[in-house]
Design a protein around this nucleic acid. Structure first.
Length: 667
DNA sequence: ACGGAAATAT
DNA sequence: GATATTTCCG
């Protein structure tokens, strides 16, 4: 991968380059020796493989001799004595299918126009900005992509590609596996968000009726193919099967730690991946606010890059590198979280309770829901599927209440049991934002629950995206005695969440994340509908309604986490300074019953007022966020202080799931 | 169109 | 080397 070196860079930004098609062969043509040398140097610096030529004729000759497949791109000056650059452009255009970028010192419109007219796909004014050079690869990608589309009309394209592949790389055509019909479909990255949506749909359809086509339709995610869904479904089924077969070791109720410890699935605890949760600064973006350029028209984003490739028509694939890494604005509704590709979507689940696994199996779908996952392969050039507008899934409120069976057992990898959450009547939801290294594993939640709560997949983003302030959002505070606290090893985010009855709202520092009571309730792994509803209410409606829907706009007394503190890579120490300041006594406490904050761990004590924004939305907070120059200018968006509801919810779950429930953890 | 399996990519 | 995804095939 191209990422290699860059990845090791201190700057996360480098990560964005992960998918950069390193080594593209660039034929640089310029009669000015100095300029040529500089250009070559810059190209190398940008990981291209330059071949410098001093004149147009030589360039053309080289191209003819070597064949167009010998180069991926041509950059030529247009003012050369021997052969006018325009002429060269034209010849290249006529004879071969190579993207040609013209170099011009003056940058006059007329010149540029002429160059474009003669076949240049772009122009660069000298002295070329390294950023521009860095982006030229996009032309190659686009070209290939276009070629692919073109070829795709050919019914045989698929087979051909395979054939080629099987025949070996020998042929010139697929020489580098990047040309023409060898264009590969971008890998779909099953981010937490996407996966959530997937789960929601599957749950709705029912396992039996959940077939790729139907799922695809319901998911309504642009650029997602039936094959993608089929593949994911297959994987999911395997996961379910595995779960079934895999006897769980009944852990004690609350002992999540154990499951987690031995859970191989936990595997990626720290990946240097920025905290996915909304809590994390990086992720706080208002999707709506996100620049259009970032959002893929089709809902899928290309992880590889984020350049603004206005010129690159990638058919809806959005380049969105940034989002993956804290640096970029979230492309999806669920900001970071969602952007993160899941490494292992289907982690092993251990059932703690003695419940029949069948039912579990049947409804496992639900279990694994939320997810936030940092991509395991940062450098992957996959496409992150996104829901364009939140998808056209049904409104949250339409979300059907699931049969109790489905609702529940949540025993995630973490050992978190849903029951812990809602079962006991404790209304507290902990949220953790944590390291979401392992999406599925980390995020386990009843799908329905997740769906509504998280606002996930089913909710149209538009509905989901809300500014907390505008909504009555109250911070959830973990008040019940049963709350457990977990912490994310890496990230410490906290949010208290007490839904219905919370009197106190507490802020948890990174280290003090409220935990569901898992411990106390060893047994119940299932949630009943009632519970579910309850949860929903709690989460969403503040209990006013039994419907699971998430109606943020309704103005229900919803308690939502107003703030997020983000610890980003911070240690378990105290809350970030910013948080403190922002913490305000809760204006209101919605508390109904039982839970009181008294039980909370000491750390929770402080109360927080609902806030609208994330406290540390800044990149800096996490330290993970890359600071890089982004041509697209996404940085600005990255720092959006706004937090969408969806993000929020998702984060909660994600955190829950992702968190390490290790009681032993140091706070 | 599906689902399973093989092929690939990370 | 293990997985995750994609692609091929019946």
């Amino acid at each position: 991968m191209a990422s290699g070196d860059r990845r090791h860079g201190k700057e996360p930004a480098a990560v964005e380059e992960d998918n950069f098609p390193e080594g593209l062969r660039v034929l640089a043509v310029d009669d000015d020796r100095v300029c040529l040398r500089v250009l070559e140097a810059v190209l190398r610096e940008c990981k291209y493989k330059p071949t410098g030529v001093m004149d147009g004729r030589t360039a053309l000759k080289l191209l003819r001799e070597k064949g167009e497949d010998h180069f991926d791109l041509v950059i030529t000056d247009v003012h050369m004595p021997d052969m006018d650059g325009f002429q060269l452009l034209e010849l290249i255009g006529l004879e071969m299918d190579l993207p040609v970028i013209m170099l011009s010192v003056n940058g006059e419109k007329a010149t540029m126009y002429k160059g474009i007219k003669h076949g240049a796909c772009d122009y660069i004014v000298k002295p070329a900005d390294i950023k521009e050079i860095r982006n030229i690869w996009q032309h190659v990608v686009r070209k290939n992509h276009v070629a692919v589309i073109h070829n795709s009309s050919d019914a045989k394209s698929k087979k051909c590609s395979k054939k080629k592949r099987n025949d070996g790389e020998g042929s010139d055509d697929d020489n580098r596996g990047r040309r023409r019909n060898t264009w590969k479909k971008p890998r779909v990255s099953w981010t937490g968000e996407l996966h959530n949506r997937f789960l929601e749909v599957v749950n709705r359809l029912g396992v039996d009726r959940a077939v790729p086509k139907a799922i695809l339709q319901m998911m309504n995610v642009h650029n997602l193919s039936r094959e993608n869904v089929a593949s994911h479904l297959q994987k999911y089924r395997l996961f379910l099967k595995r779960v079934t077969d895999d006897p769980m070791k009944p852990n004690h109720m609350g002992d999540l730690s154990e499951s987690r410890r031995n859970a191989s699935y936990m595997g990626m605890s720290h990946q240097g991946v920025p905290p996915s949760s909304a809590l994390c600064p990086s992720g706080s973006h208002n999707l709506n606010a996100a620049p259009p350029s970032i959002l893929g028209p089709h809902g899928l984003s290309i992880q590889p890059r984020n350049w603004a490739m206005g010129t690159v028509g990638n058919g809806g694939l959005m380049p969105d590198t940034g989002s993956r890494h804290a640096s970029g604005p979230p492309v999806g509704l669920f900001a970071n979280t969602s952007d993160q590709p899941m490494q292992d979507a289907f982690p092993r689940i251990h059932f703690r309770s003695g419940k029949a696994y069948h039912s579990v199996l049947r409804h496992k779908l639900i279990e694994v829901n939320t997810s936030v996952v940092p991509s395991s392969h940062p450098g992957t050039s996959s496409v992150a599927a996104e829901m364009p507008n939140g998808g056209q899934l049904e409104p949250a409120n339409q979300f059907p209440v699931q049969p109790r069976e489905q609702i529940a057992h949540f025993s995630g990898p973490m050992g978190m049991a849903p029951s812990a959450m809602g079962m006991h009547g404790d209304t507290q939801l902990p949220y953790l934002a944590g390291n979401c290294s392992n999406p599925w594993q980390n995020n386990v939640a009843p799908s329905s629950f997740a769906g509504s709560m998280v606002g996930a997949p089913l909710l149209p983003s538009s509905q989901v995206n809300v500014n907390l302030p505008q909504i009555n959002q109250t911070i959830f505070a973990p008040s019940s005695s049963e709350m457990a606290v977990f912490q994310n090893e890496q990230q410490n985010q906290m949010a208290g969440t007490n839904i219905n009855n919370t009197t106190s709202v507490g802020i948890y520092s990174e280290q003090m994340t409220p935990l569901f009571n898992m411990a106390s309730n060893a047994a119940p792994v299932e949630m009943t509908n009632a519970n579910f509803s309850l949860m929903n209410q709690m989460m969403v409606n503040g209990g006013s309604t039994s419907s699971p829907s998430l109606n943020l706009q309704a103005g229900n007394p919803v308690v939502l986490p107003a703030q997020m503190a983000n610890g980003g890579g911070s240690s378990s120490s105290a809350l970030p300074g910013h948080l403190d300041s922002s913490v305000v006594p809760p204006a209101q406490m919605v508390n109904g019953s039982g839970s009181s904050s008294s039980a909370l761990p000491g750390h929770l004590g402080s109360s927080v007022a609902p806030q609208t924004q994330m406290l540390n939305g800044g990149e800096g907070a996490s330290g993970i966020l890359p600071v890089q120059d982004d041509p697209a200018g996404r940085q600005a968006s990255d720092h959006q202080p706004t937090y969408s509801t969806s993000n929020f919810l998702e984060d909660i779950f994600a955190s829950m799931a992702s968190q390490d429930f290790n009681p032993d953890a140091v706070w």
